[in-house]
Design a protein around this nucleic acid. Sequence first.
DNA 1: ATACAAGTTCAAGTCGACTTGAAGTCAAGT
DNA 2: ACTTGACTTCAAGTCGACTTGAACTTGTAT
Lengths: 134, 134
Amino acid sequence: MDIAEVAKASGLPSSTLRYYEEKGLIQSTGRKGLRRLFKADVVDRLALISLGRAAGFSLADISDVFTANGPQINRAALLEKADELDKKIAELSRIRNGLRHAAVCKADSHFECPTFLRLLNIAGKSHHRPKPRW
Amino acid sequence: MDIAEVAKASGLPSSTLRYYEEKGLIQSTGRKGLRRLFKADVVDRLALISLGRAAGFSLADISDVFTANGPQINRAALLEKADELDKKIAELSRIRNGLRHAAVCKADSHFECPTFLRLLNIAGKSHHRPKPRW
DNA sequence: ATACAAGTTCAAGTCGACTTGAAGTCAAGT
DNA sequence: ACTTGACTTCAAGTCGACTTGAACTTGTAT
């Protein structure tokens, strides 16, 4: 496949594909002249990458789930990411509850409200960063 | 309160407080010499801001929940954000399921697997962006 | 009065994930 | 043989949320 086909199949612009290759997330199998050639299974890989990105993982995180250079994936790493997602989901649920509470709480200062106070410990202590998806 | 007190109470560096003020998210009530003075309730506001940031909302999004310049909050906007979070949580849950599935699926290409295919429509179509929390 | 720690401003730098632009290369169709 | 359009490289730009650094001001403690 040439880059345009991969782009179409994956929904990603070719500039992104080149960038991903440069970062080692995907690889082209050769060149025809200057032009990259890809094997069809790269589309699979890209789907998984997009899934990871949609979940907020960084490209560096995502590259963990790919083994050295084969088309295989590291299933253990994948499950680990799934577990991380579980935690994130739990955290977001608590935050959502916090927001809903703040919306109805009568206390002038939310700090007078124990329900809210409990929630606040969530924010501020997480030092991992969500990653952009423009 | 002076900026150092607010910083301590909120857990945010003073550089961030100045930045937030510049962006209109908080306001100082006056100056003593050059130095900013804050009312105590700014700490409340900051807690809410941190909560929003932890949830992945941008500062622009967060400023929606603050009314013009008073210390009040826009409860409707807050509930709206909570609803957005619900959606995000649902999406993340689906993605997590997708990851778990990819970890166990035997198919060489996940594209041969309907379970996985269904999941993929999730990724790639969301064009809102999570925001960094360094 | 003098020093100094802590505040201030403003411009510039940083981070990750891309995108954009300029300038060049090339396969394929006419 | 020539054009054309899709590709290529590489450097630089962009976005949001801050941080950092240099140069300056000031309240407080001595």
